[in-house]
Amino acid sequence: MAEISHSLASRSAKARAGIFGDIRAALKPMRTEGAAATVVDDRIARHPRNLVPARANLPQPEQVALFIAKATEVMTSVERVASASDVPKAIADYLKGKNLAPELRLAPDPRLSAIPWDRQPTLALTSGHARDRDATSVTGAVAGIAETGTLMMMSGPGAPITLNFMPDNHIVIMDPSRIVGSYEDGWDVARTRDGGAMPRAVNFITGPSRTADIEQQLQLGAHGPRNLHIILVDQLDRGDQGPSESDGSSA
């Protein structure tokens, strides 16, 4: 932790005392003292769901279809392949179709390194966090959320989050069994990983980067990826303990 001066700490402590004093004085007439703290602890411990829209309350195969439809709507491209051994060719074709260099920056995720990349010897691979010159990244995802075609990423040794934001093109490899209905379903998945501890960053990603700051005209690739491409790979997680397995803990 940084060297924070004593004056900064004591000013903060003084402000804190004032703030809490004022809040408690203002709220006193509005509540029964003592009860409030219990209610608060209970809500945090149980983290009950509020209303979850019915839209994604579907059997899993239909959630996959909804995910694809919603992702496509926000200009994410999605394709589906039968197995991990089809991934190298799918990526090589994708890059060729977009006239992009066959160079990939891979997340150091064991699931990605297990892909038989040597089937496409033209692909040049490096692995690690993103660097400014990396044009195309390949990462996994913890879950797909059907209600809005959203990817859920969690940072970790096998998932450097710069890969989600720096390169012009971001390719995501995910087993379709990871697609769930709602954000709340996504949090349920998150809570089963790593003892439920929040990683440094959770990213919900819904389409490629965009801006409409100039005359309200939509432009893709404001700062993050211009292209977001998802390859759904059936049976990718086969042999895992399912999505609850702590991804990337062994980088």
Partner: peptide
């Protein structure tokens, strides 16, 4: 497009 939940500084083993 991006909703990000940030929790503390980088963890042991994080690359960024």
């Amino acid at each position: 497009c991006y909703t990000t939940f940030s929790t503390g500084p980088r963890r042991a083993g994080d690359l960024d």
